[in-house]
Amino acid sequence: MNATSRLLPVAATTAVFLIGFLICSLTFPNFASLRVVMNLFTDNAFLGIVAVGMTFVIISGGIDLSVGSVIGFSTVFLAIAIERWGVPPLAAFALILVISALFGAAMGAAIEYFELPPFIVTLAGMFLARGASFLMSTESIPITADLYSHLAEQALRLPGGARLTVPAMVMILVVAGGMVLLHLTRFGANVYALGGSRVSTALMGVNVTRTTVLIYTLSSALAGLSGIVFSLYTSSGYSLSAVGVELDAIAAVVIGGTLLSGGYGFVFGTFVGVLIQGLIQTYISFDGSLSSWWAKIATGLLLFAFIGFQQVTLGLARRSRRHATGGAHA
């Protein structure tokens, strides 16, 4: 794949989003507004945050099935810590970030030291985290702390009655930070190298163990952050929240042009992938008569289309490479 064919999947994802937005705007008269876009950001902030972590994991050749459960656990933990134990909300935020980061580090270490497949380890992590949140509470606990109502009101007011809310701001910061970390640092290069060839990366002197542990730590910590955002969004903690979000995140990553087998992908593509899923939801709510399950069907069809598209572009890139080689040496 040369530099342009590498960007092709992201360009295609962006085109799909823009075309989708155009269709929505033509269908519904007041759709094309900054307000709708900002709502799209707010409503999908928690998904966007975990999807950034998932991008790192998938590019490195792994998978993290535990993130949905970690979000659920985080909301329950926050509700109980703030409401029952009287922990100040900011301290509770710090605590849950540390706990989820440690949880991710433990999964990464298990993958490395016991040479277990990430699928199995994070599947176990998924059951553990979900089980732990049920253990803490099976009921939805409302969070009434002042900070929560305060944060909910906080927003950057934009023209046209649009509001850039705190969750949306957090997501934008995470996406921007993720882009810098993945594309501009040594750690990011190591993540790509791991996805390209694990054995080679180790032979090139990269500390593979450290990199893997850090990747899963990052993914879990972002899931914890996503849990904070989710609890702000719903002002409650519930053990059944964010069930299946890991699959939405994986879908967003793949629709965003990242290869599920690792090695290729961009954080920006994932961000657009999240927005496309949000756009489908918004279309359905604007329409009013469609069942919300159509969102799942549309996401499924899009996934198929994008995987097919990736195979075609990969095949074309390989064929053109075969013609290009040989003349490379000057």
Partner: peptide, 23 residues
């Protein structure tokens, strides 16, 4: 034993890329 998906430059300098402020 290199990473096929990385650029030639990244492959040459992986783990010892020149950086400024961590970038």
């Amino acid at each position: 034993n290199l990473a096929p998906n990385l650029s030639v430059a990244q492959n040459l300098f992986l783990g010892r890329q020149p950086t400024r402020f961590g970038l």
